[in-house]
């Protein structure tokens, strides 16, 4: 007969050995970022299940009864013992999540994927370019860099939204501007009454910047058309494609390289990515024309 403590431990091992088992978390706070995006703070009910991660990694979020979806972590690993996920209401699972309140339970497993190269970025000026919900994974890295006071160079964010009322993460944008840690530049596709800021694609914001290509890296996340346009613009302006880093979104069911959904040209986005530099992406895509 096994001693109770050992038995519990061996059961836990049996479960943690099984990558499909999620860990329960409680929603401790919900921030309404805009009409479709909310940031959920999740706390592990079993503290032993809490994990360490780096910006750029994602989790598989479970809303039992509705399944799972890959969601990038939008909080910085430097902040608290909880994680934050910023989720746009887009499908069945995210709609179910959006109907939930603080105090209710969801589950996560992870963290998965290759993070942003936080060590290699040290000392460099960082240009963040995001569109809409694309700011979520970059928010994690921006706050990480801010917390590592002085380890990173100048931080600039160019952020595009559909309209002024769609601008998400306003609390963060305000905080970053207030303490001067991030040079925040905004643009919208469609202005509304009273909008004094910039109108146009996020690429137009890049025209205002003088980028020191030898010591800058760009980090992009947003809709595919935006990413393509920003990459061409940055390359045109002389940035090395190895210093242009993006994170890809794909349909994923397992998150750990088993289910096959995110396979792309011999690469598994969940394991080999989702963070890639553009040089690597070009090599992957170019391998077969």
């Amino acid at each position: 007969m096994m001693e109770t403590g050992t038995m519990r431990e061996s059961m836990r091992n049996a479960v943690t050995d099984n990558v499909f088992m999620p860990n329960e978390t409680v929603i401790s706070e919900i921030i309404e970022e805009n009409s479709t995006i909310r940031t959920y703070t999740l706390r592990f009910t079993d503290r032993a299940a809490a994990f360490s991660f780096l910006p750029g990694q994602f989790v598989m979020l479970s809303v039992p009864g509705h399944g799972e979806a890959p969601i990038s972590i939008s909080s910085s690993p430097t902040s608290t013992d909880a994680i934050q996920l910023s989720v746009r209401r887009a499908g069945r699972l995210t709609s179910a999540l959006h109907s939930m309140k603080a105090g209710e339970y969801v589950a996560v497993r992870g963290p998965y994927g290759v993070p942003f190269p936080v060590d290699e970025l040290k000392g460099r000026d960082l240009l963040f370019v995001a569109g809409g919900i694309g700011l979520a994974p970059l928010r994690s890295l921006i706050n990480y860099c801010r917390a590592k006071n002085g380890e990173y160079g100048k931080i600039t964010l160019c952020y595009g939204s559909r309209s002024p009322s769609d601008i998400a993460f306003k609390n963060d944008l305000d905080a970053w501007q207030a303490d001067g840690s991030v040079d925040v530049r905004l643009t919208v596709d469609v202005p509304e009454r009273g909008w004094q800021g910039r109108t146009g694609l996020v690429t137009t914001l890049l025209d205002d910047l003088t980028i020191n290509n030898s010591n800058s890296s760009a980090l992009l996340c947003g809709p595919p058309v935006m990413i393509d346009a920003v990459i061409s613009k940055l390359k045109e302006s002389g940035m090395d494609s190895e210093q242009i880093i993006t994170t890809l979104e794909r349909n994923m069911k397992c998150g750990v390289g088993l289910c096959g959904h995110c396979h792309m040209e011999g690469v598994l986005i969940c394991k080999d990515g989702p963070v890639f530099n553009v040089r690597t992406l070009e090599n992957i895509m170019g391998a077969t024309g």
């Binding site: 499909f20 069911k253 959904h261």
Partner: peptide
Amino acid sequence: CTCFTIFDRP
């Protein structure tokens, strides 16, 4: 062919 999908059935 080993691809699979995951879903919940209440």
